[in-house]
Amino acid sequence: MKMIITLISTLFCVAYLSAQTHYYDVSRTFYENGYTYQCDVQRSKRVRLYNKDNELTYTKWVFKDTGKEPPFPYDIDDTKDDTWTKRKCYSIVNNAFSAEEKQRTRGEELDICIYIDSNTGKVIEVDFTFLATNSFATIPISVYRKIEIGLKENIWFTTTAEGKKMNYLVRTWRQKIGATLLPD
């Protein structure tokens, strides 16, 4: 009897896993409700997903006046310190996922990159990176679009004189969905 119950449970698990659609297994363009996203899949099966209108996704980070990259390690004080943006970014990302999607992606990390206008401090572009084989590949474009819009509408920075010298500013982080930041 235990064997039959185990076999039936296993079959349900296999059916559940095979029912998940991996949207981002090959490079392609997605045309959705008035917006277009590009999915670039590398040989390593690493996916970069971004709004097709993005101009900075593959643009080098350079000084405006010289066109040269800053020396590594990057030690540019490009924004004034704040106490709210990181926590708000986490909240926006978490709130875009349904309870079922949070459960499905549990334990995995999503890489998020925001590109910031160096003059205004506003978020102007967003992209996402994950493996084509993990659970983030089963999340529909509409969720990533919701995150992009939320970050663009609700996040901004105060740029410094040094930051204004750059062609753009960038912030990246890895986030487990559902995770919250502990107080500093």
Rank of each mutant, 00 (worst) to 15 (best):
N119F: 00
T120G: 05
I116H: 04
E100H: 07
I116C: 05
I124M: 13
G121Y: 07
T120S: 15
T133G: 09
D111N: 06
L110S: 07
I124T: 15
S118P: 09
V126L: 06
S98P: 02
Q103G: 02
Q103D: 09
I112L: 14
G121P: 13
D127T: 01
E101D: 10
F130I: 03
D111Q: 03
I116E: 06
S98Y: 01
A132C: 05
S118W: 10
L131D: 12
F130L: 06
S98G: 01
F130H: 11
V126E: 10
E109P: 00
D127W: 04
E108K: 12
D127F: 09
L110P: 01
Y115A: 05
L110N: 10
F128A: 13
R106C: 05
S98F: 01
T105Q: 03
K122A: 14
T120F: 03
Y115T: 09
F128G: 14
F130K: 06
D127Q: 04
E100L: 12
F128W: 08
Y115N: 09
I114P: 02
C113Y: 09
V123N: 11
I116K: 08
G107Y: 04
K122L: 13
S98I: 02
E108I: 02
T133S: 13
F128K: 07
S118M: 12
N119I: 05
T129E: 14
A99R: 07
D111V: 00
K102N: 02
R106I: 02
T105K: 02
A99K: 13
T133K: 11
T120M: 04
C113F: 09
R106N: 14
K102R: 12
E108L: 07
T105C: 15
E125H: 10
E100N: 09
L131R: 12
K122P: 01
C113Q: 10
L110C: 08
C113T: 15
D127M: 01
A132N: 05
T105D: 03
Y115P: 00
E100V: 05
Q103S: 10
T105Y: 01
E100A: 15
C113N: 11
I116D: 01
T129L: 12
E108V: 08
T105A: 10
V126Y: 00
D127G: 08
E101M: 11
K122W: 04
E109M: 14
R104C: 02
G121L: 05
T133H: 05
G121V: 10
V126T: 14
G121H: 07
T129V: 12
D111F: 08
F130R: 10
Y115E: 05
L110M: 12
S118N: 15
I112H: 00
G121N: 09
L110Q: 08
D117C: 13
R106G: 04
D111H: 05
K122V: 02
G107E: 06
E109S: 14
D117E: 13
